[in-house]
Design a binder for these strands. Structure first.
Lengths: 196, 196
DNA sequence: TTTTTACCATACGCTGGCGTATTGACAAAG
DNA sequence: CTTTGTCAATACGCCAGCGTATGGTAAAAA
């Protein structure tokens, strides 16, 4: 079932439950248990799909662009892009993706979620680290920068949800994003310390 | 009841439930409903207490130190301090505080939690913003920096929990923290752009 | 000593979700 | 036409948590 995805995005992990979902689809749970073994099975399917999409998307991005700095900027614009939770654009696209992300992250303590989330974070931090390595940073420095970038991303997402009134809107947000990128990605005018 | 606090820290918001808590205390829920009106009442009490402590702690810190840069560094060392989730030191102190924080943040969608969390974030970002203003940054720049710092904090906490193996340990962590502070707090050698 | 107050236990009903038969409809294959 | 396989509905039992009612006990107050 595809509706589990949106349920997760809207109501968190506890919303991806069999009876509510069945109601939502106008069927009864009797039929549900034909498609899935368990609630666990449904959850796992949803999560694994998310993992797949997350990693694949990032990989395709890295194939197309060669300059690592450009990759970072692109990634930043995509992930911090255009007021994540406003969700006006396309009604479901970027909005739902971030909401899903938040739901997963909120359920990090769940035994089914933990390993998936762990792998996705590994993948992302690994990717970031690689970019910084290509920019000539030491292994340690690259790791540090990758972690900080990821943390800033995760935190910003939450900020949007939990205290949206603090985050600048409209063109103010564009400036904010520029600030983020300029402090996190060396090249615009900051950083460029250390490595070659 | 004081035990709700630790339950929240350990098992998240769903663990602060009346029957499990009563069992844990060796009493029955019959007695519980003498002390509290509701489950909501218990939750509210726990959250309001957390809010109070959070804000008071930060205020007292600002009274003691005059140099805003020093305040930021101190705050950073306290909040990013000494491998947050290792929790060996003092068994319950810093560990439990951060675990509670994560639990609240995970339950941000809860109608009871949302306003409290919102206020706490407001307070913290406001405090950070003030520090940066005192350092001479423009209102906009100060806000941007405050948001980034808070986001980095929230994200780092989650990284510790969700992918602890990626975060350097021991003295490696000290270097990481130094990296954080040097990129986020101007003065060591970075930043110092814009505002007079 | 009676009586009130503070605290706790027992027991009940309610809700909502999970999982399991069991049965039915309906279409494709035999 | 019958058989088989796919998908759905009904109905049941189970569990866990919430909230309520009621009764008990022991100490303090009267």
């Amino acid at each position: 079932m595809e509706a589990a995805r949106s349920a997760m995005a809207e109501g968190g992990i506890e919303a991806v439950a069999v009876e509510p979902l069945a109601r939502r689809l106008g069927v009864t749970k009797g039929s549900f248990y034909w498609h899935f073994e368990d609630r666990k099975a449904l959850l796992n399917a949803t999560l694994e799909r998310w993992e797949k999409e997350s990693t694949e998307a990032r990989i395709s991005a890295s194939r197309r662009i060669f300059d690592p700095r450009e990759r970072l900027v692109r990634l930043g614009e995509e992930v911090f892009g255009d007021a994540p939770l406003d969700g006006e654009a396309s009604g479901q696209g970027i909005f739902s993706r971030h909401a899903f992300e938040l739901a997963v992250s909120d359920a990090a303590e769940d035994p089914l979620v933990r390993p998936v989330l762990r792998r996705v974070i590994e993948h992302r931090v690994g990717y970031l680290e690689e970019c910084y390595r290509e920019l000539g940073f030491s292994l340690e420095e690259a790791r540090h920068r990758a972690l900080l970038v990821y943390a800033a991303h995760a935190g910003t997402l939450r900020l949007f949800r939990d205290a949206p009134h603090l985050v600048p809107r409209g063109e103010g947000y564009t400036y904010y994003r520029r600030h983020l990128l300029s402090t996190l990605v060396p090249g615009d005018r900051a950083g460029d310390a250390e490595g070659t």
